[in-house]
């Protein structure tokens, strides 16, 4: 019962965000950024928190989604929907191929290989100047109004319309992830996380499940990337780089990777902190680095995890 209450509050806040964001000193784009990066962190946590597999290279799929949408709108057809579909397809395909190469690895080894593979796409985006814009990123394109047949959704000019477009996709994604986790598939993933050997003895095809979880995670990460490109009307090769991957991991850990909503909270804190720091100090990188260190040393269970142990401890 308590759990549903908490989710209700989160949804209420998400759906009303554009109306009070300005009053508390934010802006609508900031709200969209929170939702999008929250989705990316939740997508990563599908793998990290619920399957127990550490990917430190999710920026690759996120960035492929972003470049997919940008390059489609710029070079192929000026349609937001087509861009998102192609971006997500590119990210998911890359995830499926790389996932197949690495499902047998575990622990530190898995993490290292995901980091290294994550960089491939960064170098391609960085080097292939003529197509990707290289270091400057892909510019000269923007999100297009969506024609729904009976009406046109003006996500180009209307900030709030765009926010609700993002939130709608977020809601569908989160619902699908929650349903998957609640069903037998999700329970199997938890079994693998808790005790891989025992799960294997029960006859569960471990590699297949980890691969599926990886691909699902990449699918939603690339959707988040596609939306992030739309938020900015711009793609930056840094979307694909290892520091972006680390950012997703810290969001998930900071929020609490054993909880479904934790990564969204982590993303919120992170985005607000970064927004505040980068406008107040030149050395925001040091502060962000310090946050990483402090979270690892003092809050390894994250916001939700720490709150839960407190409430359990008090009778």
């Amino acid at each position: 019962m308590r759990k549903h209450w908490g989710s209700g509050v989160i949804w209420l806040l998400l759906f009303t965000m554009p109306f009070w964001m300005l009053a508390v000193g934010g802006y609508t784009e900031l709200a969209a950024r929170i939702v999008v990066l929250g989705l990316a962190a939740m997508a990563l946590n599908f793998l990290l928190g619920f399957t127990g597999v550490l990917s430190f290279g999710h920026a690759a799929y996120f960035g492929l989604g972003a470049y997919g949408v940008g390059m489609t709108i710029k070079y192929l057809f000026p349609s937001t929907a087509a861009g998102v579909v192609i971006g997500v397809a590119a990210g998911t395909l890359a995830g499926a191929i790389i996932g197949a190469l690495i499902v047998k690895l575990r622990g530190v080894y898995f993490a290292m290989v995901t980091i290294a593979f994550g960089q491939v796409f960064y170098f391609i985006a960085f080097r292939w100047n003529s197509v990707t814009g290289g270091d400057d990123g892909l510019t000269g394109w923007g999100r297009q109004p969506i024609n729904l047949g009976f009406t046109t959704l003006d996500i180009q000019g209307n900030d709030k319309a765009f926010y609700y477009f993002v939130l709608a996709l977020f809601t569908i994604s989160v619902a699908v992830m929650a349903l998957l986790l609640r069903g037998p598939f999700g329970r199997t993933l938890l079994a693998i996380r808790e005790n891989e050997r025992r799960a294997r003895f029960l006859g569960i095809p471990i590699e297949l499940h980890i691969w599926l979880s990886f691909v699902i995670s990449c699918f939603f990460a690339s959707l988040a990337g596609a939306l992030f490109a739309l938020v900015n009307n711009f793609t930056d090769p840094r979307f694909l780089r290892w520091d972006q991957s680390g950012t997703f991991v810290i969001m998930a850990v900071m929020g609490g990777m054993r909880s479904f909503w934790g990564p969204l909270m982590g993303a919120t804190v992170y985005v607000l902190l970064q927004d505040y720091l980068s406008s107040h100090t030149e050395n925001w990188m040091s502060f962000v680095g310090l946050v990483f260190v402090l979270v690892v040393l003092f809050f390894p269970r994250g916001i939700v995890g720490t709150a839960r142990t407190r409430t359990v401890a008090e009778p």
Binding site: L48, L54, F56, A111, D243, G246, V249, I250, V253, M285, S286, V288, G289, L290, V291, F292, V293, V295, V296, L297, P300
Partner: peptide, 12 residues
């Protein structure tokens, strides 16, 4: 996970 995150922060 934690050693990666901490040294990552240190790199920053």
């Amino acid at each position: 996970l934690y050693s990666l995150l901490l040294t990552f922060g240190l790199a920053f």
